[in-house]
Amino acid sequence: MSDTPDIITKMIKQIFILLLSSLLFISCSQSKMLTRSLQKSKAPISYLHDSEIIEFDKTKTIALGSFNNQIIDSITNVTVTRRIIIPLLVFNYFDRKYDISLGQSNLDQNYTDFFKNSFITESHRSGKYSLVDSNTSDYILDIKIDSCYTTSKYQMTSSSLYLVSHVITTIKEKGFPSESKLVLSVSLKSNNKIVFEKDYIFDKIQALSNSRSKQTNALRAFFITNMVESLSLNTKECIELIIDDINKEIN
């Protein structure tokens, strides 16, 4: 008879461990589903060039020199930063927060090509120089992107209430504003001499207007688009400033 409390305690322990491990398993599988879902979304990165078109002062010529490739990760990474699980047998609560890092897979075009093409387009618009292919140009421009990150946070909370034969489950998801950081160095050479050299750091936080949505898939697509928009507009500002600096330097 004295063994009975021991057996009950052991059983409760076993049930608790089983419950906790199953909840952990559910939590992990939901994280994997989120990762897959976010990686699936694609958003366009091109932007509207709204700078003033300069048609004069284009006597100097610049050729694009080196340009590094593979700047951003190939796929979007999802890392769990916080996981709260409250298992109370009849009521379970999960709260997970993720760090999201944007990858190439979510962009509708290769980032390096996009940067290069946007730079060429913007140079034709607002550059006080002509961009040429030949090696006989007045200047050679080297652009080295040291790092390019677009990060954000995403939160998933779910609660389940077990009522005899019914389960009431509520799932809420929330996206946070995204931050794009671009670190690059630019050098302009004339006759193999550096005439202009500068390191740039661009930071852009893009507000997320629709941070909560009843439709999970719509929110996730919206969230990824917000990250891509952040990167797109940060690149726009970066290119415009570089061209502005070059204009000042060569004229």
Partner: peptide, 22 residues
């Protein structure tokens, strides 16, 4: 219409809308 600032803002909003409704 490069000097039309109202149109510029309208177009930037349109591009944003198009991006989110891609």
């Amino acid at each position: 219409n490069p000097s039309n600032t109202v149109l510029k803002n309208i177009l930037l909003t349109r591009v944003r809308y198009t991006r989110y409704n891609y």
